[in-house]
Design a protein around this nucleic acid. Structure first.
Lengths: 145, 145
DNA sequence: ATATATCCGAGTAAACCGCTCGGAATTATT
DNA sequence: AATAATTCCGAGCGGTTTACTCGGATATAT
């Protein structure tokens, strides 16, 4: 029941990108990895997933880098996690892809998993990258004062 | 972010045991594994964890078996999962053991993880094995009619 | 005594995690 | 045109976890 570093690192990178969204500045993998303390080569892979999911845009070549593909308030945390982890489902049988386990009707635990999943998705879908970026900026200011 | 079979199988076994709680009947590993479709030797290990956590009682020897150590309404799903998986924490830094990551104050994601974890624990702690057993019995009746 | 159980430790194949590495392709700068 | 900076991509890899199996020791009702 653990969230992997993929999800955690990816979220951090997205939040960092969000702080530059207004200015339109790009951030390179090198910058992101330095600022967030994530291994360069590993982060590269995570960003590739985010790009494939249409959450970030890349500019190739020298002076290139990444920007968010949408406004931060239009990117939910759930979307990001889904891109990185494949799914936010706690158990396969309550995933959004409609795959049900063979004994849906007789599974004692299914109602519990459904309830749990609904609560989780509530939070993930209602929290945006913008929300997180705002918290992040406030935190950074507090540290500097 | 997946729940392992340990948790899922263990919950199923506990719910099955709860259905026999009133009658005081014991269930052996063989019976539980047959009724719930779980490998015998694997289930043995899971039950050992539940026993260590004081959730089930064992009667050794011939005609032995297991019973719940407490009334089903006094066993929360959260307790059971904790016994089986070690913790219900999604990320280490919000676990109940007080271990915080090195950059608690500067982590952009921490508020999100805290909120998420609170929602999860709400459900897990407020749902009891009795609740689940009741659902289970209703389901079985529906199947037979 | 015997059959039926729990108890216990070890082993194991496969998957997953958290990376690293090497190089190809693209583009701004000089 | 050359160079440096960057994204893009696939492969590999050591360690851990998962989901089991197996072999036996121990306890106990019959």
């Amino acid at each position: 029941m653990k969230l992997s570093t993929k999800g955690r690192y990816g979220i951090k990178a997205m939040v960092d990108l969000a702080t530059e969204y207004e200015s339109g500045e790009k951030l390179s993998i090198a910058q992101l990895s330095e600022r967030q303390g994530i291994s360069y080569a590993y982060l590269e892979q995570l960003i590739a997933l985010l790009k494939k999911a249409g959450l970030v845009k890349a500019a190739r070549g020298a002076q290139g880098g990444y920007t968010l593909a949408k406004t931060p308030e239009n990117i939910s945390v759930g979307e990001v996690l889904k891109a990185l982890e494949g799914s936010t489902a706690l158990v396969e049988c309550v995933g959004t892809d409609g795959t049900d386990c063979e004994n849906v009707c007789s599974c004692a635990a299914r109602p519990l998993w459904l309830k749990l999943q609904r609560r989780i998705d509530d939070v993930l879908d209602s929290t945006t990258i913008k929300d997180m970026a705002e918290d992040y900026i406030i935190q950074k200011e507090r540290l500097n004062s």
